[in-house]
Every structure is written in C-alpha cells, then in structure tokens.
Amino acid sequence: MNAPTTSASPPSLRLHLIVLAALLALLLTSAGCALLPLGVFNTLSALGISVIKTLLVMAFFMRLRRGPPLLRIAAAVGFAWLAVLIGMTVADVLTRVVLPSPW
C-alpha cells in the first residue's frame, strides 16, 4: 500500500552459512547441556537455546530482520497467543488443590 517495496538484495551466501554454523553449534550446545546435571537449568537452557535458534531462523532465513514490520507483528502474535494458551492452562494445573484419596 505504501511505497512499493522494491525487493532488497537478498542476504549473502556467507551470512547464510554463518547462521547455519551458529545453529549447528547451538544444537550441539543444547545436546551437551542436557547431559550435565543442572537441575531446573537443564530445561531452561534447552528452551532458551531453542528460542535463540528460532529467532535466528526467523531473522535470517525467513528474512524478518529486514522485512516489513507487519510480518514481524504477525509472527509475534502467533507466539503471544500460544503463550496465553499454555500459560493460563498451566496456571490452572499448578494452582489446583489436589484432594488426597479419602479412604
């Protein structure tokens, strides 16, 4: 609708390969972290690394970094709604009073 979006020149080959290398490195990191006894940080590190990987894929492979803001909003909305679904459902389960078996 606004100024006609002339397709910017695509990211370089080098950038693609760097991102791929970073993704694979993160993959190995997350596998490594999983083998260390870190307690609750096992889950946190695994999910944190997944979020970073997702952001890398979305920013570079899916080209959101240079893309129109509207697309970034669309992507964010999907995740935000997912957070509502998971968050409020889990909140119920975590705060329920579990009655013990009465007999």
Partner: peptide, 21 residues
C-alpha cells in the same frame, strides 16, 4: 475474548485461583 475461556469451568474442577482470574 481470548482470556476469559475459564469462566465455562468454574465448577469443572478448575483451580480456585484460575477461576478468580
């Protein structure tokens, strides 16, 4: 409208706190 669905579950065995929210 996306944040109110639990009002269908006040007596369904949902947590009291979730029901309040």
């Amino acid at each position: 409208g996306f944040l109110v669905w639990g009002h269908h579950m006040f007596v369904a065995g949902q947590s009291m706190y979730a029901s309040m929210v």
